[in-house]
């Protein structure tokens, strides 16, 4: 039986969307436009079907209020000042028995891996190379490219891309993001980041099983 090129492309495209959404969640504070979209009919129904509960206030409070709350939560959780959950792989990964540090060995590894593929870091991007949103965005780029290759019926390139995704997933995402997300689940004050962290763990587990 021949390959259903469209089906495999749609699957890759679906994964791209999830990675894109999670990138957005962890990259920056949600905008009002995004909040409106998330609580609009197209997504709220889907969230409901998977028991993703963002809480009544997320849906009912004025959008500006929700945006302010989430911005505060974002800073509290991921930026500081004060104790926070640094969303960087090098912080969550011990190397040679040493404690994690910013711009550590893992940061360099992630940077090298990404640069291997031809991508570079945008000069305007001021984050660190191993920020969770960078790793998720990288997977988004890979899955997008994979989807294109399936649509071009270029099996060799698509499967090669999958092997790169598998490597990056195993060598990086899975080694620390579940740990990171569990910390978020424990410390989040709002359902939004708790649920998103849980969704992330869920998704990465599924990725681990299916890739």
């Amino acid at each position: 039986m021949g390959t259903d090129w469209n089906r495999v492309a749609v699957n890759a495209e679906s994964r791209r969307s999830i990675y894109g959404m999670l990138t957005l969640v962890f990259r920056e504070e949600p905008s009002e436009a995004l909040i409106n979209e998330l609580r609009g009919p197209r997504l709220s129904g889907a969230f409901s079907e998977i028991d993703l509960e963002l809480g009544d206030s997320f849906y009912n409070d004025p959008v500006s209020t929700v945006a302010d709350q989430l911005a505060l939560e974002f800073s509290h959780l991921f930026i500081g000042p004060g104790p926070h959950i640094s969303p960087h792989e090098s912080i969550f990964t011990e190397v040679d028995g040493g404690s994690g540090e910013l711009w550590g060995t893992k940061t360099v590894e992630v940077k090298k891996f990404i640069e291997t593929t031809g991508l570079g870091y945008a000069s305007r991007f001021t984050g660190l190379p191993d920020h969770i949103s960078v790793e998720l965005e990288f997977m988004e780029k890979l899955t997008e490219w994979e989807a294109e290759k399936w649509m071009e019926m270029d099996r060799i390139s698509a499967e090669y891309c999958l092997s790169i995704q598998r490597m990056f997933l195993q060598q990086h995402l899975l080694t620390w993001i579940p740990k990171f997300c569990n910390a978020v689940i424990t410390q989040a004050a709002t359902p939004f980041y708790r649920e998103m962290a849980e969704l992330t763990i869920n998704f990465l587990e599924l990725e681990q099983q299916s890739l």
């Binding site: 959404m21 979209e37 197209r42 997504l43 998977i50 949103s133």
Partner: peptide, 27 residues
């Protein structure tokens, strides 16, 4: 199911404001 919705969200231009990356994949 979820991405049927979120895909629309991104199509509507609600992606993150700044990509971390420059250039294109050359696997």
């Amino acid at each position: 199911k979820l991405t049927a919705g979120s895909g629309c969200a991104f199509a509507a231009g609600l992606g993150y404001s700044q990509s971390a990356f420059a250039g294109s994949l050359k696997l």
